[in-house]
Design a protein around this nucleic acid. Structure first.
Length: 263
DNA sequence: AGCCTAATAT
DNA sequence: GATATTAGGC
């Protein structure tokens, strides 16, 4: 699709409108609030910020649709790449464990995690890798302790893999999985583990899991309901959830989200 | 519409 | 090297 752009690119580049010409449009894409919140300068500079959060809705959930029309730059702007901190990954693992492998698909995982700024794509991508990791673990589970190179998987190794993740696969007899004490306790309120150098802590949203059920169980009725009515239990509403963004060594921008501060 | 896997791009 | 994006199939 995009093959040799290098040739015509420079020509094309010459005829680009000046930043000023583009600005009026950009401004309509960025709400004043966001601009202020993220300190976005209007003139030149083509890097914009992600809208990591929805609204500071007191106790309720965000209204789903974009009907409002006034603001929704969210879809247009490109988010910084997400950094999967051990904390965030743990949330991910917990969510998968609670959903049961069967229901653990990107969308539901994302919803259960309820970390704002987190997209389905983020989860899907991570899930893909996590599954590969689990698969590799399967193979080398017997015998010696560590499977694979820790160097490659230190993130995944940072959260214990619930036992039932490991040998499941056939839809034949999946109802006699041993009780797994996936205690979600533990874990301190440490912050910023992933970023060397600076502040990297971020509050996610609120949330916690309701019932400590384990993977094997399906929720017969918690399935359809409302798309955004997944139960989020736990600490209510932090006025504003933060997502911190900064530059990494490379000049890439990264987003560090924070999993619930209370687990 | 979402999901999955594999490949590829940043 | 880690994450994102895309392609193609289901």
């Amino acid at each position: 699709m995009r093959e040799d752009e290098s040739n015509w690119f420079s020509k094309w580049e010459d005829e680009l409108p000046s930043p000023e010409d583009l600005m009026p449009l950009s401004q309509t894409l960025i709400t004043p609030d966001l601009a202020i919140a993220f300190d976005i300068r209007t003139p030149n500079n083509h890097q914009q910020q992600p809208p990591p959060s929805s609204q500071p809705n007191s106790g309720e959930f965000d209204s789903p649709e974009m009907g409002a029309g006034a603001d929704e730059p969210a879809r247009t702007l490109k988010r910084p790449r997400l950094v999967w901190t051990p904390q965030l990954h743990k949330r991910f693992v917990d969510a998968v464990a609670h959903l049961g492998i069967k229901n653990a698909v990107p969308k539901t995982i994302m919803q259960l995690m309820s970390v704002d700024g987190l997209t389905r794509e983020n989860v899907a991508s991570h899930l893909q890798k996590y599954r590969l990791y689990l698969k590799r673990m399967q193979g080398l589970s017997s015998g010696s302790g560590s499977a694979g190179d820790p160097a490659t998987d230190r993130l995944f190794a940072s959260s214990p893999v619930p036992a039932h993740f490991l040998h499941q696969g056939r839809p034949n007899s999946d109802q006699f999985l041993p009780y797994v004490p996936v205690a979600a306790l533990q874990q301190q309120q440490q912050q910023m583990a992933a970023v060397a150098g600076h502040h990297g802590q971020l509050q996610p949203r609120y949330g916690h899991f309701g019932s400590p059920r384990n993977g094997q169980f399906e929720h017969p009725l918690l399935n359809r309901q409302n798309q955004q009515m997944i139960h989020r239990v736990g600490a209510p509403v932090h006025p504003s959830s933060y997502a911190d963004e900064f530059e990494s060594a490379n000049g890439r921008r990264v987003l560090t989200l924070f999993p619930t501060g209370d687990d």
